[in-house]
Amino acid sequence: MLIIGPHLSIAGGFKKAGEEAVKIEANTFQFFTRNPRGGKAKALDPKDVAGLRQIIDDQRFGPLLAHAPYTLNMCSAKPETREFARMVFKEDLLRLEELPCELYNFHPGSHTGQGVEKGVAGIVQILNEEMWADQKTTVVLETMSGKGTEIGRCFEELKMIIDQVDLPDKMGVCLDTCHVYSAGYDVVGNLGGVLEEFDRIIGLDYLKCLHLNDSMMPFNSNKDRHQKIGLGTLGTETFKQIVTHPQLKDLPFFLETPQEDTLAYQKEIELLRSF
């Protein structure tokens, strides 16, 4: 069965988020580890975590995906920004050891004018200093649209990071459909070719999950504007190809489409399952 779910708030607790996922017939979900703009993470409640574990077991959920806050920027030129990123990353990894979630996604960040190589070095330094050999979490780099000084606009930049990490077996990639299309990878007209390129440069074994987002922007725009499935420049047929592709269909898919409420995701889940 297709492993698919929405992005849910955990403000009411992990168990409630799990219940919301079940209500809309999802079998996974993504959540921010804390406020997406930063701040302290809410203390974990063991009973709440146990409740989520029970739902995952009962409903046979696929892997969940934790998402770092947008303010985490390991490659900033500002030392204080990088130290904040280190603190959040370290704290999140420790918290995930207590949660039934083994995937942690973050945006590689913006090098803020230092250049890609120096930016990558900053990311790698923090990853190597804060990850450990027996952690259960796979740290996932997200593909980016390429706006401004973002790192991760191309597969080669993600490969640069993975190649320099001491624990590459603890690393992965999340392919965001909106982002890669805006970055110049034609998943609409040549999905097979994009996957071949990913495999050649990074290796498909590193592809751990996908963000399913249509886009408000044209191909190769380098702009990040998500749209509901089928209502943007990627179109419904592209998502049919993605969720049925033999190299992708067994991976977890996470919706980050702009919705008014959680129930609005249900129609997208039903559509994608219909394929």
Rank of each mutant, 00 (worst) to 15 (best):
S221D: 11
I229W: 02
T143C: 13
T257C: 01
Q259N: 14
E142Y: 07
A68M: 13
L2M: 08
D134W: 01
M74V: 03
E156S: 05
L64F: 13
E19V: 05
I4T: 07
A66M: 13
A121T: 06
R82Q: 10
I161V: 11
S76C: 04
L8M: 13
Y70T: 10
M131L: 07
Q59F: 08
L96R: 09
D205R: 12
K118G: 03
S182M: 02
S221L: 02
E20D: 15
C154F: 02
V243A: 06
V88F: 08
R53P: 00
C174D: 01
K267I: 01
K249Q: 11
I3M: 10
E256N: 08
V139W: 10
R86D: 01
E20P: 00
L191G: 02
T143L: 13
Q241I: 06
M144D: 08
I242V: 12
P246M: 09
R153C: 00
D57R: 14
H107C: 05
C75K: 13
M144G: 10
W132Q: 10
S9L: 06
D224T: 07
T238A: 13
C101F: 04
L191T: 04
E256M: 09
T262P: 00
E80D: 10
E197H: 05
R60P: 00
M217P: 03
G109N: 11
G51R: 11
V187W: 00
F254C: 03
L234N: 13
Y265D: 14
Y265Q: 12
G12M: 12
S215Q: 12
F14L: 14
K42I: 06
E156P: 00
S215C: 11
L248E: 10
V194W: 05
S145I: 11
P246T: 00
